[in-house]
Design a protein around this nucleic acid. Structure first.
Lengths: 229, 229
DNA sequence: TCAAAAGTGTTAACTCTACACCCATGC
DNA sequence: GCATGGGTGTAGAGTTAACACTTTTGA
């Protein structure tokens, strides 16, 4: 049994949002220091001593992008630890997924000279993201898709009150497919505790006003939503 | 941006097996050194410098339990990094899930004075497992159940050639529920590429001989197997 | 001949998809 | 009125759970 080798651990956050003009976007920051200074990367940084891993992810997201919502639902995507993935030495990254409302304003800070929302397709272009962050983003997108199937994760993309159409647009953006509006309506309103009616309605352009809901207490959707219809 | 604090990283492996008398079991080792010397724990240990994380998990499993199958399918369960989880300091554990055939012989080695299969219910008893390994085991069991739904992971519990009943017993053990034999048969044999008939049959006690299959090339089951029926 | 396990057939219940249709609003 | 999006109704297709039934063996 050899003496253990210490290593460095970072947390990186894939923060997704569905934005009116650009569709599904992820938050990226421009790196303010080496390595990959000046390139775009996922917000993240080193875990502090005695800091829980999820708290580290929330802290780094806040420091580098100015995002600090009241409650952040963070899902572990996975650990990325290929030996040469970071030129600084052995750095293992723990990736996290979260979703933010489209209204979320971002601003570079700390070690990030800039922070911006990018359509995910842009970020997945070769050599756009530093390190192995494109791989992380791909895995996070897959996880997001699975979360939508059987959890209330989709509501995390939306403001406190939202319509069923708002929620459907989130699903369509993440799943990259259109859904039947009527069937979707029935399905999500039929899950006990998923959506809590507010009694209020909202008018958006033309058409009948839509009922406003808030997220209910249910966190799982059973049976899962399917990606057809 | 404070100077990064190095930390220690371990890999821990939840190796599951469905055993004739004990049902669903996990592999545990008796710790040969402090902390928790003499207690049972999941096999695992420190990640070496320049060692990929999955390789570290496979290596530790081999060193501590004597298990070294030609191919090991390892699934990441998650990272566990509560600040006080290990008295040696800041140690983050990355947990992995794998499945082994019931025929797998184990023997303590390296830093483990003993290695044994335990029914999972035993290992989940309070204070049975060292560190936060009971939590890790619970999460790994949940992941195993999900893997069975939509992947070929179940075949990893079985020897190269197996019957549909063998596979069903795996599902019943992991899901903790009985399944209709006829419906299960139809479902799994109907998934294209999941099972490859060998043309041979095997007689087990009474009853009609069962056809032997090997795992096919398909890794996903769509639509997923459901836990009813 | 009986019991047991493997494997197939059958059907009623259920679910889902596709689309029709009504509702409530702005223009 | 008419277009548009919200929301409900519904029929046909497809799927599934439950269980009957046949097959093939050991005892």
């Amino acid at each position: 049994m050899p003496k253990p080798t210490p290593l460095l651990m970072t947390v990186d956050v894939v923060a997704l949002s569905v934005r009116p003009d650009d569709g599904l976007c992820a938050l990226a920051v421009r790196r303010g220091s080496e390595p990959h200074k000046g390139r775009w990367a996922l917000p993240g940084g080193f875990v502090d001593k005695d800091e829980p891993l999820d708290k580290a992810a929330a802290r780094e997201l806040g420091e580098e992008t100015g995002v600090s919502p009241r409650s952040l639902e963070l899902h572990q995507v996975g650990a990325y630890g290929a030996p040469k993935r970071d030129p600084r030495g052995r750095v293992v990254s723990l990736a996290w997924l979260t979703a933010l409302p489209a209204s979320t304003e971002v601003a570079g800070g700390d070690d990030a000279t800039d922070a911006r929302w990018f359509p995910v397709a842009d970020l997945l272009k070769p050599r756009k993201l530093a390190f192995d962050h494109a791989t992380i983003l791909k895995d996070a997108l897959a996880l997001a898709g699975r979360e939508l199937e059987d959890s209330s994760f989709g509501t995390r993309f939306l403001p406190r009150a939202f319509t069923v159409s708002d929620l459907r647009e989130v699903y369509e953006a993440v799943w990259e497919q259109e859904l039947d509006a009527g069937n979707f309506q029935r399905k999500v309103t039929g899950v006990p505790g998923l959506l809590k009616p507010t009694g209020r309605t909202v008018q958006r352009g033309r058409g009948r006003p839509a009922a406003l809901y808030t997220a209910g207490s249910a966190t799982t959707i059973s049976p899962p939503l399917t990606r057809v219809g």
